[in-house]
Nucleic acid binder design. Sequence first.
DNA 1: GTCTGTTTACACTTAT
DNA 2: ATAAGTGTAAACAGAC
Length: 302
Amino acid sequence: MPRPGRNTYSDQKPPYSYISLTAMAIQSCPEKMLPLSEIYKFIMDRFPYYRENTQRWQNSLRHNLSFNDCFIKIPRRPDQPGKGSFWALHPNCGDMFENGSFLRRRKRFKVLMADPLAPSKPSEAAHYLQQQHAKLRLSALAATGAHLPHVPAYNLTTPPPSTFKHPFAIENIIARDYKVPGGLAFSTMPTMSAGYPLHSQLATAWPHVYGAGALESASPISVASEYGAYGVPIKSLCHGAQSLPAVPVPIKPMPSHLPAFLSNSPQSLSPTSPHTATGQSSPANPSDALSGPPTLQSVAVH
DNA sequence: GTCTGTTTACACTTAT
DNA sequence: ATAAGTGTAAACAGAC
């Protein structure tokens, strides 16, 4: 089997399910929510395969959004005109990809009432997210005394599902070794910066990305490294210095005293910020990172 | 008319 | 073998 090189998936179907792709798109956004059109754009920007037959895969993607409980629909506010709602990831769906395969989940995410604090219905999840966001912003304001940045458009109502500290959270999947257009490489695994050991399954899935060397060399995020995957500000992906478990556990709603993500730089919060359009030339492209994932090659065919 | 969102159905693949 | 997850197609309704 030839070892796939850079841009291997430029013409082929990427080894990601629509769920993975959608989650990537959502997680790539600082606000952790995107309208459908932006999800389309994200996928087409990064995976040329999806620039064709758009009707087919977009229909499938919409099907996935509606069908899977891991996606929650967040209605636009009256002052946020536009078509369609915003889509976010359910706060509790962080362990979907525990088997290390991002083409197929270990199990389908189903909303349960296992955690009394956790939202069960999508509508409750959306409300929960908004509440958490409000709490975090207030606590940040109280802690720093700083002005909250002006957050344009849809950003205000919807909190990032800041519970995504899990090593299998999409943000972690996409947030490695991002290079800004200028060419400066960043180590952007926020959980590593917080001392969060990386699960071995990731290294199995993407050894070139998550191999032992990469793990050992993982270092705290530089203060100069403001941007992570796809231009997402690293701060938005950080979750403070909270100590996190080494073993993947179901994601729980984050306590309201962790305002780390609130330090999003205001300029990064534009719904149309360039991070969604870095183009295939950007090494941040997950497909570029897949220079040779042995465990994924076999599932890349369709 | 187009886009978005929901639902159903079916075939296929993969995990158990 | 079976159940579950995924991809695709299609029909339909509602919003823009």
